[in-house]
Write a protein that binds this DNA or RNA. Sequence first.
DNA 1: AGCACGCCGACT
DNA 2: GTCGGCGTGCTC
Length: 655
Amino acid sequence: MYADVVFPLKLPPLTYRVPSHIPSDLKGRIVKAPLMNRGCYGLVIDVTDAPEKSGNTILKNIKDIESVHQRLVSESTLTFLKWLSEYYLMPMGTALKSCFFEEAVESACKIQDIGYRRQETGDREQDVKDRENNEEQIPKTEKSEIRNPESEFSLVCNSIKEKNYKSFLLHAPSVSDERSSLFEIFKNLNSDINGVIILVPEIWQVERISSILHGMFGDRIAILHSRMSRSKRIETINRIISGKSDIIIGTRSAILAPVKNLSFIAVMSEHSPAYKGEEGLRYNGRDVAVMRGFTEKSCVLLSSVCPSTESFHNSIIGKYTLLGNSSKKTTGRPEIKIVDTRGSRLKDISISGEVLKKAKELLLKKETFLFLVSREGYSLIRCNDCGYVARCSRCRIPLVFYKGKSLVRCNYCGFEENVPDHCEECNGFNLKPYGAGAERVKEELESFTALSILRTKDSELLSDFTPFVIGTTLAAKNISEHFFGAAALLNTDALLSRPDFRAYERTFQEIIQASRFVKQDGSIFLQTWTPANKILKFIKQYDFNGFYKYELSQRKTIDYPPFSKIILFNMFFKSMPQKILDDIQKIIDDSNITGVELLGPVEISSSLKSYRYCLQMLIKSKDRKRIHTTAKNLLNKLEKIKGIKINVDVDPLKI
DNA sequence: AGCACGCCGACT
DNA sequence: GTCGGCGTGCTC
């Protein structure tokens, strides 16, 4: 008898012999096995009669499993783990590591080294029984009783009770509606629910949810996010495995928590790019949530005030059930005004006359005005003779001018140098600030109003009256809803023309999110040189359906998600002789790829400090299975090139 | 992830 | 001549 064991290392499963005195119900259990001359804890994912012949290499010197420990995962979780590894093109060990395996081992095996025999009546099962017994003492109302049968959330509640996979997409009118819907669901269920994961995009949002649910679930609630200390994380995982906590609230990684009998997954602000990992196993928490719900037969609720185009598309094709009709809700939202800055007389000023007039007006009424800019620093630098924008010599990214520090900086590689005095394109000396950063807007406002202006950092609290607030992001956790009398987006065009096929969608989402901080009868000004842009019309009217329809038609014509799948390869090198380029080309040619589009490789600037060079390759296809087999094949071959380091990004957000 | 093996610089 | 730098590679 042989067992395939996965360790929380960048490794595929390894085969071990199972000594005859060990029973065969090993699948899903933690075992200790020799690896690199010492005992390591791993997870058994398969038990076979003969050792698997991996390719044509016959395994010699197969070692014995040392000891057997508790069962950690169910059959369905194993299926999920295999999917996670295959889908994101990473070894199973990497996937296992992401699933809090080390923490599970730490809490279950090392602290109290439970041998095989004691296992059957382990503390874990007893704890669950204890909790269930306690709960039986508490009188419950009838399970089928829904307090508010008219509520559309009864659909979600029924689905949770049925214990079958079903996905919902809630298009909520506001962020607080998103949260209250969740509360409503738990209230309707009379807290009669086991195994819940609630995801939020950022750590500070965890507290918002946990405080709402604390009265209902007490210490059944566990919190999980990436900035917890190791010991706290182990403690939390221990609580989850033992069944003491089964309501998990956390950020991205919490979707991989070892919760048993998962019946409900909620993904708040599902459109958020924060759900996508940027290193290691680059999974998207939202997509993983849907897959986990599917394999573990749970109800999945995605919610957002501005759902992603992908999720909206899934609701059209019937993959998700659409809830909420906030797309029709235009009342109670601030008025959006498109400000045409093309004819502005004051060419060197980033704030338009119309916006400035409103700002002064609000100042008299003691109301606060929010200025949204898309970058820190003063501006870019542009040659007024030839129109060339100064760029980083290494990255070819526009350099940002910091007037206060009197330097230019590349925000990609961090390179800083003195402000150039002439244009490197035409050698002219007519360089001028171009575009508006936070520093410049502050300067302009101060010169127009003779007031000192508050620049917001995330941590700053706004309590006393501050006439103007300038922000680059809206991680405005300390700003209460409807705080501002008005808001202005000074460079809407910069957002709309970001080099990302999701630029329109992102802009729409950012404006919708900003709108929640503006008074309902206030206004939002969008300054633009392209007032005829269709997207601006949809935004102005809060026309979600119009936007999605247009955006989906655009995505279809350029053949991007959701109409095709994309996988990005970034290949890093210390040096890049012609031979490497030839080798890569040969691998591509030999793979005779069909039904898959391959763009590149093209050289891009390297984002890794220890690697100077980077080649990027984009793999694109309508065929979900084919793109994966092609990518896996290519990856296997490319990895053999010496000195290469490859980052694989399945469903990348940034291209 | 670790830990070994391996090929070039400064030392008793 | 050796000691040791950490770059590459393997782990059933």
